[in-house]
Design a protein around this nucleic acid. Structure first.
Lengths: 227, 227
DNA sequence: AATTTGTGTAAACATAGCGTTAACATGGAA
DNA sequence: TTCCATGTTAACGCTATGTTTACACAAATT
């Protein structure tokens, strides 16, 4: 399902930091490369064409800001994600960094976990943007919230709005059981009051239209989407 | 032919903060809407379908996290940008926030300028550089925005301005569902107020003139161009 | 200017099908 | 068995959309 791992270039002059970040992002499955100063960062960026570049602001040879500025002028690096890493926590630097074309600006001392979360968030957003497609793919079933369309083995299934919303809720976390209350408040909202059988009827219609039985009843508890 | 301004929904229970942020982002040319608690945020989000939602974490009725969670399970809010705003600067909350599906996490006290920079950075990244005046070719249908002409199987179809704009909007992203609100703000503009049936009438005229039924209704949601 | 033609919007009515309810069926657990 | 949770079906009100007509207004033509 996933393509190649995302490639990250980390540039910092402190070996300790390089190591910590490399270790933590490597653990997430990213492909990690490092550089120890501004010039090396630019060289390696051109060589590797990474998806994300993490730049320490204070580096020998060239500062992170300079590196960013140089890279951003090149067409190849317009789309590359850039995160600044810095001990300068003052507001002006941060604004300057972001206006230089960075996508995020993280202050030192860095929590590796926070950095990882931010990296993940950036990639998550990029993914949905590039493919224009945040659809759920579960085996031979595809659920596309943007097109409001369900496809089973390349055959379209047309669902009504509520049916679709309900299916999407379940399918977003396959295997997880959703309580009836939970379903009600998510799909119908908290204030709306509907009868007992309403959910069942919708479930039934979904099952019917889909042909495949991908929704399991957990009696006394709720419903779940089968993997 | 610049696109409409990005629409931002800000939810916070402190009126001062709402005002400061509204003012600063408004200055940047964004279209601003506000909510003062979690429930109102959800309501307005559904109503306005904003491009970005800024959520205070600590709010009455529902917390920002809850709002985010609820919206993210709905098909319509998969692509919406979300920023958390919070006084909780601890690392765990931040990670949790980002993993809830937020795109950024900003600590209070907020510098309006920093927030603005971050908002700009998010939108900058999202921007798709679609050459505006390129003609669309979809099967046997050609839509040429320069000549203002639609051709089906080498037979010309003459559309009026609004009809053309509407068709072009839908056809630019074939398959994607456009909400009625979305269509209104894109084709008619944000300030213009027109009656409920106006869109339908235009859709009808397009369908009539085109002969081919290339526009599908998704009841309760909007319209889409068939691939 | 007067005339004609066409566009965009509103208003009024028609209609399909969505969402819900109600009534009854079924099946498993105690 | 009896009970309770869910399945199933049909019916129906209502809402969102389709359709048509009318009209103000702009644009084009004379």
């Amino acid at each position: 399902m996933e393509g190649r791992p995302m490639r990250i270039l980390i540039a910092d002059d402190e070996p300790d930091i390089l190591e910590i970040i490399s270790y933590n992002l490597g653990k997430e499955g990213y492909e990690i490369h490092t550089a120890k100063d501004g010039n090396e960062a630019i060289e390696k960026a051109k060589l590797l064409n990474p998806d994300l570049i993490i730049l320490d602001v204070m580096m020998p040879k060239k500062t992170g800001m300079e590196v960013c500025q140089i890279l951003r002028t090149q067409p190849l690096f317009q789309q590359t994600l850039i995160i600044f890493l810095t001990a300068l926590s003052d507001e002006a630097s941060q604004i300057k960094g972001l206006e230089y074309g960075a996508d995020d600006y993280v202050n030192k001392p860095i929590s590796p976990k926070v950095l990882t979360s931010r990296v993940n968030a950036l990639f998550r957003r990029l993914q949905t943007k590039v493919s224009e497609d945040s659809s759920l793919v579960l085996g031979n079933i595809t659920i596309d919230p943007v097109k409001f369309m369900v496809t089973i083995d390349s055959a379209d299934v047309v669902l009504a709005k509520k049916e679709f919303e309900l299916l999407y809720l379940l399918a977003a976390k396959p295997g997880r059981v959703f309580l009836r209350n939970e379903i009600l408040s998510q799909v119908w909202g908290n204030d709306v009051i509907v009868g007992d059988r309403t959910i069942d009827v919708h479930i039934r219609k979904i099952r019917q239209k889909m042909g495949v039985d991908c929704i399991t009843t957990v009696k006394g508890v709720g419903y779940k989407f089968d993997v």
